[in-house]
Amino acid sequence: MARPKTMRHLGGDRRGVAMLEFALSLPIVLAIGLYGIEISNLALANMKVSQIALALADNASRVGVDNGLAQQQLREFDINDVLQATRLQSNDLKLTTNGRITVSSLEESGGVQRIHWQRCLGLQKGADYDSSYGRTTIKGTTPSTADDTGAAYDPTAGTNTKTDGTDDSASHPGSVIKGGMGDPDSKVFAPKDSGVMFVEVNYKYVPVTGTWLLGNQRLHSVASFIVRDRRTFALVSNPSPAAKRSTCDLYTS
């Protein structure tokens, strides 16, 4: 049994108090620090996704080749080129593995707004990753809207599927979009007899510390640019040697 003098000595001993306080507060300090790191990384990833969407829409609005008639002809090769640039730009995010990119050509003709063609890149699929604002549908089916799930998707929209020298692109006109593309408070419309490159990016955020702090986060960004130069909107050409079309029925990285 400890003597009274020893007990009084232990009662007045303050050595190790700082270490004990640090041990008790460490979980709280660590959690706050990790939360700050995660929030900062999320904000940075969101900014990158936004910039990637803007760069892709800008690039897609510029590409094309002179067809000899003072017009720019858009080719499948050009579309694949700008998608490849996006793939390289987003390599640190692994965007094409953890997300989905949709490029839509919103065009106006005769007072009608239409998604003439779409191209996609990315492995993720489902309502959270496929386009939220419409899709190209087979001619004669219900006009496409943001909540349209009944009309069949047409991967050949805006293209010529004939190989005998004839052109059947008119039979793949894409989808009429009533009210433009985009969220209700920020609809985008193509100018008269022109077009807009509308880009949608959906990304499954990869957290630094796991999902226990923020849960599963999906980043979403859209961007649009009016087409530069005098692009011909008749169809997307695919001269020999033909390039593989990055249609939205494919899920590739």
Rank of each mutant, 00 (worst) to 15 (best):
R3T: 15
T6P: 10
R8W: 11
H9E: 15
H9N: 15
L10Y: 14
A18V: 12
M19C: 13
F22V: 09
F22S: 10
S25T: 13
I28M: 14
A31R: 08
I32R: 09
G33A: 10
L34Q: 10
G36Q: 03
E38C: 09
I39D: 08
A43R: 13
L44Y: 14
A45R: 03
N46L: 08
K48V: 11
S50P: 10
I52Y: 01
L56T: 08
L56V: 03
L56D: 03
A57L: 02
A57I: 04
A57T: 01
D58E: 12
D58A: 11
N59I: 07
V63Y: 01
N67H: 02
Q72H: 12
Q73E: 12
Q73G: 01
E76F: 10
F77P: 11
D78K: 00
N80R: 07
V82T: 04
Q84P: 02
Q84Y: 14
Q84V: 14
L88V: 14
Q89A: 15
S90M: 06
L95P: 08
T97W: 08
G99M: 03
G99N: 08
I101E: 02
I101Y: 03
V103W: 09
V103Q: 11
G110C: 03
R114K: 10
C120P: 02
L123A: 08
G126Q: 01
A127T: 08
D130H: 00
Y133G: 03
G134F: 04
T136A: 05
G140H: 04
T141V: 06
T142N: 10
D154C: 08
T156F: 14
N160K: 03
S169M: 08
S171D: 11
H172M: 05
H172I: 00
K178C: 13
G179L: 06
G180Y: 02
K192L: 12
M197T: 00
M197G: 06
F198W: 01
F198C: 07
V199K: 00
V201I: 11
N202H: 13
Y203N: 01
K204C: 01
Y205C: 06
T211C: 05
W212N: 15
W212I: 13
L213Q: 05
L214A: 06
L214W: 00
G215Y: 07
N216E: 15
Q217S: 11
L219R: 04
A223I: 07
A223D: 04
S224C: 09
S224H: 02
I226V: 15
I226P: 15
R230T: 02
T232F: 11
T232D: 14
V236P: 02
V236Y: 00
P239H: 04
S240K: 13
P241A: 05
T247L: 10
Y251F: 12
Y251V: 07
